[in-house]
Design a protein around this nucleic acid. Structure first.
Length: 375
RNA sequence: GUGUUAUUAGCUUAGUUGGUUAAAGCGUCAGAUUGUGGAUCUGAAGAUCACGGGUUCGAGUCCCGUAUAGCACC
């Protein structure tokens, strides 16, 4: 049977590993490489679906198993007709499995072979996530792409801990695959782990490829390590991932990391960074980060980014947005979120064009120079 | 006019029987943020303790006077 999600390779950049492609899903095609906005609780914070489509031009968004399971409960989302109906988003959705929450809520969790026991951050109640349970939840939510249940090791972790964790994650991935029933409507992706140890990454990739998932994610990097470590693992692991399937790098969202990911041959990235820093008064621009909350912009009547085509930049000034942020007005968060998300989706539009022109390496160097990065 | 209460950081306040470098919240200024427990978190600057005297080894704290504000009564 044809999987719910397939990858079509259009072009490989002749000067790098970057690939231009299309991911076909039940709710439409995704042009890759792509950045995916995160909507943890069935909403990209402060954005309507119309804004995501028309202003941000988002092709796919993420949501989260852990959070929706706890509130409102996956049964309610299922009753609503699934996540797409519930939140009025008719394009593709990817649900994260809650593995990262297991990591970030580590003071409350107990990991065993069976799964993870944890306490709800909302009311302290005890819950058990097993691979089978996570599949039940993700099937109820009904996203196009669902993630297998994994453990994301903290940085740094010892070789032994990382190895045991990675091997358990592989066993969990197998159980996820066996428990997954809606294969015609939802594609289950495996998550490669192995921390910052090259041989563990190789082992993880090999074992997961043997399980034949319709797509693969690179997890457990961009967890606080130095950039050199990140790049080393990225460039080591990505070539291990199958060429005929989508490659998803989890948790990456700064402009430089996104370009590096594309260069390495990654197709999909997601991150909370653009929406999170928006809520704290910061904009991403083609000339670097602008902390618009700062006093420097009190009388700056120019747009956040003069090169940006978004609703915010077409209509509002830095001084006004600064005022909204300082006054704690909701509109400030909304305008910055629109801009930051549009900045990244547009960056990836450019990346796709540059790949088609075999020019992504040059583009990276120009971008770094302009953005103020020193590679 | 008389009595009374108050006056401490930009604002609102804490400050024990007088005892190290006067504290906090908000505000201001800045930093952080990468598969969202984040309209969050961290840090910094900012005070002649209304003013002038006095008592004391030592005063934001006790005494006197002045100023300003509130309240009560003429």
């Amino acid at each position: 049977m044809k999987p719910a999600v397939t990858y079509e390779l259009l072009h490989i950049d002749k000067n790098s590993g970057a690939r231009r492609g299309v991911v076909h899903t039940p709710h439409g095609d995704i042009q890759t490489p792509i950045f995916m906005p995160v909507g943890t609780q069935a909403t990209v914070k402060s954005m309507t679906p119309e804004e995501l489509k028309e202003e941000v031009k988002a092709q796919i968004i993420l949501s989260n198993t852990y959070h929706l399971y706890l509130r409102p409960g996956h049964e309610i989302v299922k009753e609503a007709g699934g996540l797409h109906n519930f939140m009025k988003w008719d394009r593709p959705i990817l649900t994260d499995c809650g593995g990262f929450q297991v990591f970030s809520l580590s003071d409350l969790r107990t990991i065993s072979e069976e799964g993870v026991e944890f306490r709800s951050h909302l009311d302290g109640s005890k819950h058990l996530f097993t691979p089978e349970k996570v599949m039940e939840i993700e099937e109820a939510l009904g996203a196009d792409i669902i993630m297998s249940f994994d453990e994301c090791c903290p940085y740094p972790s010892t070789y032994e801990y990382t190895k045991n964790s990675m091997e358990r994650t592989t066993r969990w991935a197998k159980r996820c695959k066996e428990a997954h029933t809606t294969t015609d409507k939802q594609a289950l992706f495996g998550i490669i782990q192995g921390g910052f140890y090259e041989d563990l990454r190789e082992q993880s990739a090999k074992d997961l490829i043997d399980l034949d998932f319709p797509g693969y994610a690179l997890g457990g990097i961009s967890v606080g390590e130095p950039k050199e470590e990140f790049l080393k693992m990225l460039y080591h692991t990505t070539p291990l991932m199958p060429e005929n399937k989508p490659r998803y790098l989890m948790g990456v969202g700064s402009p430089d990391y996104l370009i590096e990911a594309a260069l390495a041959g990654i197709d999909m990235c997601d991150c909370v960074l653009p929406t999170r820093i928006a809520r704290n008064g910061t904009a991403m621009t083609s000339h670097g980060k602008v902390v618009v909350r700062n006093a420097t912009y009190e009388r700056d009547f120019s747009p956040l980014d003069p090169e940006c085509d978004c609703y915010t930049c077409k209509n509002y000034t830095r001084a006004y947005i600064r005022h909204l942020v300082k006054a704690n007005e909701i509109l400030g968060v909304r305008l910055l979120s629109i801009h930051n998300l549009r900045f990244l989706t547009k960056l990836m539009e450019k990346v796709r064009i540059e790949i088609e022109n075999d020019n992504l390496l040059n583009f990276r160097d120009e971008f770094y120079q302009k953005y103020g990065y020193t590679k």
